[in-house]
Each structure stands twice: as structure tokens, then as C-alpha cells.
Design a protein around this nucleic acid. Sequence first.
DNA 1: GCCGTTTTCGGCCCGACTGTTTTCAGTCG
Length: 575
Amino acid sequence: MKNAILSELFNQMADIMEILGEDRFRISTYRKVARIIGDTPADIEVLLATGELAKIPGVGKSSLAKIEQFIKTGTITAHKQLLTKIPPKLLELLAIPGIGPKGVKAVYEELKVKSIADLKRAIKAGSFARLPGFGDKKAAVIARGIAFLEKSTGRIRLDQALEAAYLVTDFLRELSGTGRIQTAGSLRRRAETIGDVDILVAAGKGKQIVQAFTGAGFVQEVLAAGPTKGSAIIQTETAPIHVDVRVVPAESFGAAAQYFTGSKQHNVRLREIAVKAKLKLNEYGLFKADKMIAGPVEEEIYQKLCLDYIDPLLREDRGEVEAAKSRCLPKLITVEDIKADFHVHTNASDGNCDASDLAQAAKDAGYKYICITDHSRSSAIANGLSPERLAQQIKQIRKLNEKLKGVTLLAGSEVDILANGSLDFDDKLLAELDFVIAAIHSGLAGSREKVTTRTLKAMDNPYVNCIAHPTGRLIGQREPMDIDIAAVIKHAAQTHTAFEVNANPWRLDLKDTHCRMAIETGVKLAIGTDAHSVAGLALMGFGVATAARGWATKADILNTLSVAKIRSWLKSKRP
DNA sequence: GCCGTTTTCGGCCCGACTGTTTTCAGTCG
């Protein structure tokens, strides 16, 4: 699949054009095309061949020609030509917080800086600060930016961002004079990774609130502190995290929540609609001439723009604005709809509690059933169960069920898909189980053909109900397998196999766009926390949010079925 | 480069904060 590299090439062309100071609208067109290609789960080659690509708004003749040239030849002439105009390493400077295209252009032309290493030397030698328009303070900002870039791994996981958000919101709540507090930005949208944490607070005295925040004990470094915005690096248990606190007047709280939740692209769409209706939309409200017609309440912004309210989870400019206009947004899955967890481990394999603990915890969470899915024998590191131990566990679970009231344990297994696509247990044993999830745990770096074939073959087994973490990625740590996602989704629909949405914030696998593709193909999703402890069950919300970001409704999610209905759904695949 | 319910040419979303300024450009979100 060439989507990622192609998206990168368009972004790179935009970067270079920015440094060269070319027309900004032209540049934003390149960025838009990059985003469209990067966002789509479908293979760009297929989209091009079927003519679908040409139909996407924003992709015009010129972009289409470049994409076609890349598919045919592996390069884009325009990209190559742009690359001759600047040293390629110069582009890495754009990642430094505090320096943008104009700054990069200046240090390149005036100081012959060609890389981050060059820039560091120029700052140290003092030549950077002597450039017109720059100075000692700017030099210090950039030096800090480079240090931050070098030590940070980039974006953080959802659980880390939430930890920071709780820390700061709890602090703000204790201050006098603060009203409503709302998390915004990519965290509110539950994007899979978070750049920085945005928190809104309604209050009159902005400067005081900002000063209190930037002076708090958890603040490591203050980046900015004005009358409405404070920006700081804060120290959490897991990582240093960039947090922005914005103070807004109560009458603008809804507009600010809308504005700062984004995404950027979603907001652009909304402001375009506003402009066409001769209105102005900003973080203070929606205005007709100078009169505010919406502001305190977020829902009213959408209402006054003649749109249905769009859930933050959908605000990515992936068709939600059109759907809101034509009143056909999906009714998204919520945690309240969830009646089960499909993926948990006990101390029989690598978990730290037993099945009865999990049953009680599931009941406490308001679930009707929970599926015990310990590892199979090939996952030796995880103390995977032998056939004998699994048979034993099934008996135990049946016995435990006789005593349980209000909650049911389903006997399951997370069965390894072996190198040749066969399963770790034979069919006779699998037939004893209520729910079988198959998973690849080894050979994840295998070829596209190999990992795809393994998964396809596993789905052919009549006892496999679900594929766990289908792409195998670990966010920020391990790339997904090079699997043909379109092919496996199609086969899942044909074989009546569900796909897992692994709720662990390290995984979120399937991811949002793949969830959407599965749903559109008619594949059911089973959300599993992959919990190894009672506390792990609480990760469910991340999985629900990921599915909802893929436009999932209650009907798409197996976790919403009653025990009776899930049993009958599971039987329908069996011989 | 893209697009069209005022347009096939002339537009294309909005504001805060900072630093180096003497009224604003650059960067960021």
C-alpha cells in the first residue's frame, strides 16, 4: 500500500514550497491532498483505478496526475524538482517548535544552515541571535525546542494525555472564580495519539487563572502566559506533557469548546459554512454583523449553521459535515450500550486475577457477561494454556457459572495463528469453547502476502469468531503488520467473522478508519480490553471511542447483544 | 492548486502570544 509514502511526498512538497515562500493557498491544497491520501483506509491504487479518487473534493487534475505518475514510476517529477532547490535535511528543521518556514529560509540563506546539527552550532556561536528579526530570546526558544524534539518521542498515548488532563482539571476546579471546565482538542476527540492537552475553563479573571496554572507544582516549564492562555510542560507519572489552558468568558464557553476541540479541518469547514451564510465564527461565538447569535452552548453553534450536532468523536472532516447537513449522522455507540467484554486474561496465563474476580468486576461494571480468553500454548512467554489446561479451565468456568448470579462467564481462548495459518488448538477442543479469538503474536514483520494469508486462513476455521488486534501495532513502539486490510475485511464479511477493537491505548486495533471500513463492509466488531487485571476492564471507553470514531452504531458492536443473542450469533458460523 | 446558489477568474478561515518591533511578522493551534 502506497498511501503513507504518497501522503508524505505531498506534505514534503508543501514543506518545500513553504520554505520557498510560494503561494499559501497552493500549499494548503497540497496539504489537503496529503491528508486525504493519509486518511483513507482504502488502497490509493485501487481508488485511482476505479476513478473514486477523482471524485473526492480537493483532489484535482494536477494532483491526480502526480499520484498517477507515482503509481506508475515510483517518483513524482515535481517533487524531485523541488528537492533540488533545498538540501533535504533542511526539512527536519520544520519539526522544531518555535521555528517555521520563514525562519528556516532565513537561517538557510543567511547562515548556510542545512540541518538541525548546523542550527545548533549557529545558536551556540551566537550568529543565530544576530540575524535581523531574531535575538537572544528567540535563540533560547529554539534551543529548548531542539532539546524537546530530541528527547520527546513525538505524540503521546490517550491514557497519558488523560492523566495530565485529570491533574490539571482537578487543580483548576479548586481555584476560586472558575466555572465550567472542559477538555478540548484531540483528547476530547479521542484521537489515537495526542500532541498536547487542551483545557478550557470559564472564568472572568483570565490572568489570575493562567498565573495560578503556570505556577502550579506540577509545571516543569512555562512556554507562554498571557491574559487568556497559559502553556506549559507538566510532569506526570509517565511523561512530560504539553498542556494549554485557555480561559474564556462563560458567554463564549460553547463557541470556545467547539473551536478548540477541532479538528482544524472540521473547523475550516464550519467557518466556510458560516462565511457563506454571511456569519462569522470564532472562539468567542457565532456572529451576525456584531451580534452574537450563538456562543454559550456548543450545540447552538451547529444548530445556527443548519447542522445536526456533531459528536466530537466524528469531527475529522471525514464526511460528518455533509451528514450533519442532510440529517443522517449515525447514532454512535456509547459505553452505556456495552454489556460485555470479549477479551480478558486470568492468572491461568499472564493475568493477575482469577475468573471469579473478573466475573464480579464485570457485574460491578453493569455487564451481563464476560469472555475469558487466555493465551494458547504457543505463547509460551505468556504462560499459554496447553490443551489439557484449557479443557480444565472450560470445566471450571462451567462450574463457576452455576454459582454466578446476574453475570455469565463465556469460555474462550485467544488462540495463536501459527506461521502456516493453522491454529494452536484442534477443532475438537475449539468446539468446546463459547468464543474463539484468533491472533497473530509472532512473525509480525512477515511479508504482506504471508501475514494476510495467515489471517485469511484463520478466518476459514468454522470455530474462529473473531480476529484479535488485527494489525498488531503498538502505538509509538511497533509498526502494524503489512496486512492487506481490505482483503481481510472482505473475507471477514464472507466468513461471518468479527474483528476486535482492542481497547488498550497502546493498541487501538482496529483503528478508527479501519473500523469504518469494516462496518461499511458489514463486519461486526467485538470490543475487548485485553485486560490482565480487574483494573484493565476500565479501558473499555478507549475501544468504544475508537469504534465510534469509525462511525459505529449499537448494531455494529457485538458487545451490545444479550447473552442469548450472542450465543445464537456465535452458533451461526459453526457447522 | 481547487472550485463555483453572487465567480470559469478571483477568491480561498480565525485569533493569541511572543519577540523584536516602533506598528508587525512569524508561529502556533
